[in-house]
Amino acid sequence: MSSSQRPSKLFRNLNAKVASIPMILTALVVFVGGTAWTVLYSFTNSKLLPRLHFVGLDQYHRLWSTSRWLVSIENLLIYGAISLVFSLVIGFLLAALLDQKIRFEDTFRTIFLYPFALSFIVTGLVWQWLLNPDFGIQRVVRDLGWTSFSFDPLYNSSIVIYGISIAALWQGTGLIMCLMLAGLRGIDEDIWKAARVDGIPMWKTYLFIVIPMMRPVFITTLVIIAAGIVKVYDLVVAQTSGGPGIASEVPAKYVYDYMFFAQNLGQGFAASTMMLLSVVIVIVPWAYLEFGGRKRG
C-alpha cells in the first residue's frame, strides 16, 4: 500500500511481528510440527522412547487387531450417535420451550446450563454415585417395592457406554440449548406472524420453516458436538476407568494408556493418528461446504 521504499521489509511493522511470535510458534511448532512428528513416529517401532526405526504400517496392523481398540471404536460410535441425536433433539426442544415468551426464562436457562460449568470429572463422579446399584437409583426403586428392578449400566458391560452417555448428555445439552436459542432468536418475528396468519400449526412452522432457516446454527452445533465426541476421555476415566473390563474404553484413553503406562509409544502414536484421521474426515467436508463454496460465489 505505501509507496515509500524502506530499507528492509522485515522490520516494517516490527512490533506486530514480535507480538505475534507466540502465535507463530504455537501454529508452526506445536500444531504443525507436533502433528507431523506424531504421524511420522506412528510408522516406527518406538517403545519406551521415540526412535526413528521405521516399520511401515505395523503399528496400524497391530492396532486394528487389538480387541481393546476395536471396543474403543465401537464405543465411540455408539456414544457419538447418542450424543449427536439426543443433544440435538433435547437441546432444540428445550430452546423451543424457552422461546415461548415464558416467565422465569432466566431461571430455567440457568438450571439447564449449570452442568456445563462442571468438569467431566465431577460429572462422571456424580453419575457414578447415582448409578451405583447398591445405593443409587436401582436401590431406591427396589426399596419402593419393585424388587426385580435392574438398572446398573456401569456394572453391565453390554450397556455401560449408555450409562456414560447419560452423564454426557446431562452435562452438555445446556450448551446446545443455548446455541439453538440464539438461533431461534435470530429468526425474524415476521416469519412467525406470516405463518400464524396462514394458519400453519406451530409444530409445522418449526419443522418446515424455522429449522431449515437455522441450517447454519445446526451445522455449527454439529461440528461442536462432533469435536467433543472424539475428545471424550475424562468422563470415562472418572465414571468407570474403562471398566468393567475393557467394556467402556475409548480411543483417547487408549492413546494415553499406551503412551504413559504401557510404554508402547508407537501404538499410542498410531492410535492418535487414527483419531486425527477421524476428525479430518468430519472437518474437511464441512470446511469445504462452508468456506469452499463461499470463495467460488
Partner: peptide, 26 residues
C-alpha cells in the same frame, strides 16, 4: 503483516486437532 492470516488459519484449524496427537511432542 504479510503472512499473519496464514498463521491465524493454522491456529484455528489446530483447534480441531485432538489433543492426543500433540501431547507427546509437547
Amino acid at each position: 503483516f504479510k503472512g499473519a492470516d496464514t498463521f491465524f488459519v493454522i491456529l484455528i484449524v489446530g483447534a480441531f486437532i485432538p489433543y492426543q496427537v500433540m501431547i507427546y511432542p509437547i
